[in-house]
Design a protein around this nucleic acid. Structure first.
Lengths: 246, 246
DNA sequence: GACTGGAAGTGAACGGTGTTAGCTAACGGC
DNA sequence: GCCGTTAGCTAACACCGTTCACTTCCAGTC
């Protein structure tokens, strides 16, 4: 963006980067609520009030970490997607879903921050207007990776979707306004199927990471694969399902 | 249990009840991380250290609140279940699922505590052995309400399930050890279908409450109903699906 | 080159937190 | 009536987020 930065501006940018990087490290090895301003400052040889030159509050620092994490996660998923051979959307979807689970299970604290109830301090007044805040934007990009793949599966080979008038009118309306934001026009039914799939994937990973499946399973891997297979069938790409590569 | 309690024991039990009750009130109107020992103590005219006569740590108090909440939620769901007329498991399942969503959306803080990432302080060493801690037990009862209904649907009228040998061997094994704990022997496939349904229900409610559906829907109600309908079809009780009563 | 304005960083402080230690006062069983 | 147990208190420690006043140092200007 603004490349012709002065010495001072470069130093500031560096510090900002270091803060976020340190915050991530603290998050990882001290947990979500060990992510304290003072801890971050201490870790990098500063004092806590100094951080207020860079963030208005702890909340804001955390949010910026969230944004960064979404970014990294998306980069990683897109890289996985682009490495799949052959590059059919069905295969890509399977691998991206697996990569998401792998990231979630190997980044417990980060996953909790992005997808759990933590960091969901809902001040309703601030929230209604603030729907376009950066974290929501980053989350939208993330959802878009999956949505785009499902859309491509539909466009390239199709799968059964409910007709518009089979959907509840209220749902029709909401899906319509959502579809209007998409670059490519799609039947409402495609979005309802996508949402349903996304809910299953999210639910599965969330339950595993938060330990809500331990009452039944001690290793959620096989169940995840079963769900994945089932999703492949729903999307008409069952033939693209292959046992996990590793 | 132990009814012949002395005066002192009764007083103690009363205080304990009051603490948990107050903690719940604080949780509701101050949020998950406003649930502070000192706040609870203040609210009931005590000092924080006094609470240590009743709980070893804040963690333990929170866990006991979690257990209570699971208890209340289960009571409520069971009451809903037993009020359904006619008392067919299909209809009951639909209404219990709706009641669960209603509870979740009207008890944001409590839901976050029970089903989110909060309160998931995972000290792996403590955890492995401690799988039978009370919170896990309470969660199991909760899952049991749904599992029992699905089992009854299967036993009374059946629904399509995968054969044992269609399941991944690792999954077979885990489901086998789980099934062994059930009072009634059931095919493994039933449990895999139950888990899949439970994941969808959990995922749907979780995403709604934590705001992860706002990127697409501003009212998750219709989508919830669509999912519910889909679950009814999977369980062969689509004829039991009725539009929401209210 | 001296001057000046602004930015970065500091230490002290306020009010909050969980938790521990030591004290007091009341209660229950002998 | 004594005496151990118990519930509650105060004081203290170490941590937290946040604010304020202060220094220090750098960039740009006369």
């Amino acid at each position: 963006m603004a490349e012709p930065s002065s010495r001072r501006e470069r130093a500031r940018a560096d510090t900002l980067r270091e803060i976020k990087q340190t915050a991530r490290r603290v998050l990882v090895d001290r947990g979500v609520d060990g992510l304290a301003l003072r801890a971050v400052a201490r870790e990098m040889g500063m004092t806590a009030p100094a951080l207020y030159r860079y963030f208005d509050s702890r909340e804001e620092l955390v949010e910026s970490v969230v944004v960064d994490l979404y970014g990294e996660l998306c980069d990683q998923l897109e890289a996985v997607r682009d490495d799949v051979e052959p590059a059919t959307p069905g295969l890509q979807l399977m691998e991206v879903a697996r990569a998401f689970r792998t990231w979630a299970t190997t980044h417990h604290a980060e996953f909790g921050l992005l997808f759990g109830s933590a960091g969901e301090r809902v001040l309703p007044d601030d929230f209604r207007d603030d729907c376009a805040r950066p974290a929501q934007e980053a989350a939208a990009r993330f959802g878009g990776v999956f949505a785009a793949l499902v859309a491509r599966v539909y466009l390239e080979q199709g799968f059964p979707v409910p007709a518009d008038d089979e959907l509840d009118p209220a749902l029709q309306e909401q899906l319509t306004t959502w579809c209007a934001k998409l670059p490519v026009p799609l039947p409402l039914g495609v979005m309802s199927v996508f949402l349903s799939c996304w809910i299953r994937l999210y639910g599965m990973v969330c339950m595993e990471v938060f330990g809500h499946l331990r009452f039944a399973l001690d290793d959620a891997g096989p169940m995840f694969e079963a769900e994945l297979h089932s999703l492949a069938e729903i999307l008409g790409v069952a033939d693209a399902y292959r046992p996990p590569s590793s």
